[in-house]
Design a binder for these strands. Structure first.
Lengths: 350, 350
DNA sequence: CTCACATGGGTAAGCGCTATCCTAATATCG
DNA sequence: CGATATTAGGATAGCGCTTACCCATGTGAG
């Protein structure tokens, strides 16, 4: 090798110009050879260009391409928390579908703060992404909400596409999740299994997803004339630790006769199970637990968690297809939320 | 309201040029007002520009900025699987730190395929990211490996910075994880707890992380003169289901006298626990289980999983600081891998 | 054998920005 | 008070790429 390295000391990447010069062709021909342009280019030239590109470690500058072409190859994804399995699964779906379409995903986390969400949307918009997917959970009465809508409207007005996951946010397209109906079915199934005395752990007031799930659940119970006393509904954080704390609260309130607790998502349910166990009780036997989402862990806790299954990865993929307009027949059907009863809610002899 | 919308029918985003015209100033002044340039600009002008920008829903085109400035605000992150809690936690750390630095993260998943990894690096390089973080696990003898190194070398030669997480990949900087030492400590701790008869579930042959953890573990056992018979070491996929399948294999081999099984990561350990339970045994009592990583779920399975704790989110953050060169004192210390003994490995009366 | 017409290469005008240089106006000083 | 610094806008030359456009060929029809 020696020191005659291809471009040992270069501090700046090879440009298309360099490649063209190296290949002894014009810039245009180089460009046409490297990206798949409509124009045909003589095969000998093409080979020369490709060889030169390889020799110079050329990598096309996507920013420059985006500027010149007027469109980027980027998808922006906004989630509440990257590490939360719910969002991680959705993100995995988006990433996979994007990859399938040759797009690149840029991801940001709102940390459940709607001010941040707004800022992030603003900043992400600068990327001129083809689409923007908002999975971060929305609040009902959010003051930043109209500003967000305005920002997104501007984004769409300039050719972008936005897709919400979860809640339908009016002028925009969305992959609606059947939070209410799913929870309602779950409630009915649990009543059928013999449960009568319920408690619920839901997210802090106003969180749309949490509210929908709770109200659906209550509606399901209501169909059998069952209700939940207000002090049996706790609203901690929408996280594993929130579930743990909420369950402790319930236990401290001396809710001895609670047969079953419904947590508005699986991570909370998992936290609740740990709290139950830490209180010296056995989840599933002393207190049954049901969640929502069917995160992978749901199968692996003890007892396995009853829940409402949401095809999260598929939801992520679909959100992207929806925004891109590359829907197929499958996408005509609504996303199915399916009740999955496991050992955490054993049938109860009446 | 009405139809006199600010720019209702615009199909293309407002440019800085539009803003400048609207504000009645030059392009240069508009540019200087909107980004924080070193040059001072008259406050009245600045206000005019800002007002015009707001009125036109202006959002600076990051691609154009990148082209003009010669640097982007992007960091590229490569993981094996977005939904895997190990990578999700790391990604969360990277995203948080990036956000802290005002950078944007683009993420891609190799799906554990090194061909894809190479392709992704090539394509991501086109973004001209400031840094590239490779967390996806590496193979020891990978044929695509030298091509990858070459690609990364080219990236660094043109001013980028790369950081590996996990394995040290020679010319590049890395956040080394003490896989071997951590596993060794775990082995010692388990021997101290009274275990003598071991089995192991590790990743497929050649996976660096898995190999290091296994060999560290074996070394730890070796210190007490203990070894693991070859048929007690299974190499399934490095995933939850791999752990499940591997454990089934072990059980089918009639390994009745296995006291404890070490899984090379927590998701495998969790799968193994499910397999144990499905075989009618009780994890922790009939067969003890230990993992590695300390993913959040480790606390919530039953019994809680003994493992080696890795501060995954912190590792993600540190990888970015390392690549950026914004290290602080904390970063001088090596990442601590800490043995955490929980109920899945009860002390064994000798 | 001329002429309309594909074919495929090169030239150059942008894409939306930044940054350098230029310049007029104001401030500073012996 | 004239001379020299500062200051802060405005033109304008790129950044790396794409894409009209242009134009020298080659081709087949009339």
């Amino acid at each position: 090798m020696g020191t005659g390295d291809t471009n040992g000391e270069r501090r700046t990447p090879a440009t298309l110009h360099d490649v063209a010069r190296e290949a002894g062709v014009s810039l245009a021909t180089a460009s046409r050879s490297i990206n798949g342009s409509t124009r045909k280019v003589n095969d000998e030239y093409r080979q020369r260009v490709l060889a030169a590109a390889a020799k110079l470690d050329y990598s096309p500058n996507l920013s420059a391409q985006a500027v010149a072409r007027g469109t980027s190859m980027t998808v922006a994804l906004l989630v509440a928390d990257v590490a939360d399995p719910y969002f991680a699964q959705i993100a995995a779906g988006v990433v996979r579908e994007a990859d399938h379409e040759g797009l690149i995903v840029t991801m940001a986390a709102t940390e459940r703060d709607s001010e941040r969400e707004l800022e992030l949307v603003r900043s992400l918009r600068g990327q001129r992404p083809r689409v923007m997917i908002l999975a971060a959970s929305r609040r009902a009465d959010d003051p930043a909400s109209t500003a967000l809508a305005e920002e997104l409207r501007a984004f769409e007005a300039s050719g972008g596409r936005v897709a919400f996951i979860g809640t339908a946010e009016e002028p925009f397209r969305s992959v609606p999740l059947d939070n209410a109906t799913g929870a309602e079915s779950l409630a009915r199934a649990l009543v059928d299994a013999g449960y009568r005395s319920f408690a619920a752990l839901t997210g802090i007031e106003g969180l749309r997803t949490a509210e929908d799930r709770l109200s659906g659940f209550l509606a399901g119970l209501g169909a059998s004339g069952i209700s939940i006393a207000p002090d049996r509904i706790v609203r901690p954080a929408f996280t594993r630790d929130g579930g743990y704390d909420g369950m402790r609260t319930l236990i401290e309130r001396g809710a001895r006769d609670i047969e079953i607790v419904f947590a508005a998502n699986d991570v909370m349910a998992v936290g609740a199970m740990s709290a139950i166990r830490d209180a010296g009780l056995v989840p599933g036997r002393d207190v049954a637990v049901a969640g929502f989402d069917d995160i992978p862990t749901a199968r692996d806790v003890t007892p396995p968690l009853s829940t409402v299954r949401l095809p999260l990865e598929e939801i992520g993929r679909r959100a992207l297809r929806l925004a891109l307009g590359t829907l197929d027949e499958v996408d005509e059907l609504p996303v199915r939320a399916e009740v999955v009863l496991r050992a955490s809610t054993p049938a109860r002899g009446v």
